[in-house]
């Protein structure tokens, strides 16, 4: 009886998966096309990859973006762990509504608004405080940290809510300082969520074009800005090659981290059960 309804949703699931993956498959396929045209298959070729790696502008943008993504993800995760503790453990304090509003709003706030508002802040700060003197990687880092903080907090909060609080309390009962209890009990238990949050932030930062366009300055063009300006002019196989590499790396890291966090979760729960 339930079977027939299940088959409809299963059909939709595979339809959705096909919808999600086919365009990317086409993209990858044509990155190996010798011809510039999408409709013509002119034989297998790796020349677009060679051209990609010879493009100095793109290559330096890659380095810059990776750097920004690394710093943004790291700072966002540190702040997000603190924010999650506030959200889950501190039930009452003045400004709680304001705080939780500020944590969730960047998740949905349109990029153009975040980008514009942050730029205006940086301009005003530069005018009145003299800092930041000019816009560049530093301002992009601040902007990315802010919205990555929101995403990371969601990921870490859900793990912290699920966590058994009695473990922490037991440590405190046995005389551990709150800091020690946090470092030795809480942190290892929420570490899989911290890793996922870091990876999510890293990819979000690496992907942002709108906010970075607003807050960046001369000489700090990020990879998405570079890609966006060339994509606006039409299809270029070089971008297909770049896309293929990005899809490949992301898939490997995603699958790898999925296995890793699963192993870690198993180990944590095994340890908790044994002790």
């Amino acid at each position: 009886m339930i079977g027939s309804k299940l088959s409809f949703s299963k059909f939709m699931f595979w339809f959705g998966i096909a919808f999600l993956y086919l365009p990317m498959a086409v993209l990858i396929f044509y990155s190996f096309n010798a011809s510039r045209l999408v409709t013509v298959w002119a034989g297998f070729s790796g020349k677009w990859y060679v051209e990609l790696f010879q493009d100095q502008q793109i290559m330096s943008a890659v380095g810059r973006s990776l750097q920004i993504a690394f710093y943004s993800a790291s700072s966002a995760v540190v702040l997000a762990v603190m924010a999650s503790i506030i959200m889950v453990r501190f039930k009452k304090f003045t400004g709680r509504t304001l705080f939780s509003g500020m944590v969730t709003a960047p998740l949905v706030m349109p990029d153009v608004i975040i980008g514009l508002s942050m730029l205006l802040l940086f301009v005003a700060m530069g005018q009145h405080l003299g800092w930041p003197e000019n816009r560049g990687m530093l301002t992009v880092w601040i902007a990315h940290t802010t919205f990555c903080l929101a995403y990371s907090t969601v990921v870490i909060t859900s793990r912290l809510t699920e966590m058994d609080k009695s473990l922490e309390e037991a440590a405190l009962d046995l005389g551990a300082s709150p800091f020690k209890a946090f470092m030795q009990i809480t942190l290892p238990i929420i570490s899989p969520a911290i890793i996922s949050a870091w990876l999510l932030s890293f990819t979000l930062s690496l992907d942002d074009v709108v906010i970075a366009s607003f807050v960046t300055g001369p000489g700090a063009t990020t990879l998405p800005i570079e890609v966006f300006s060339s994509v606006r002019l039409g299809v270029t196989p070089k971008i297909n090659a770049l896309a293929t590499l990005i899809i490949g790396v992301v898939s490997l890291v995603a699958i790898g981290s999925w296995f890793f966090t699963r192993k870690m979760n198993e180990r944590i729960s095994a340890q908790l059960n044994v002790d």
Binding site: M24, T39, L199, T203, D207, V235, V250
Partner: peptide, 26 residues
């Protein structure tokens, strides 16, 4: 994971993929 994986790759590139599909000579 199968559903979420595409959203971790570049958003820009996923939109770009449709340019090649939907163009008049696409």
């Amino acid at each position: 994971l199968l559903v979420l994986l595409p959203s971790w790759t570049s958003f820009l590139i996923r939109v770009y993929a449709w340019v090649g599909l939907l163009k008049n000579n696409g």
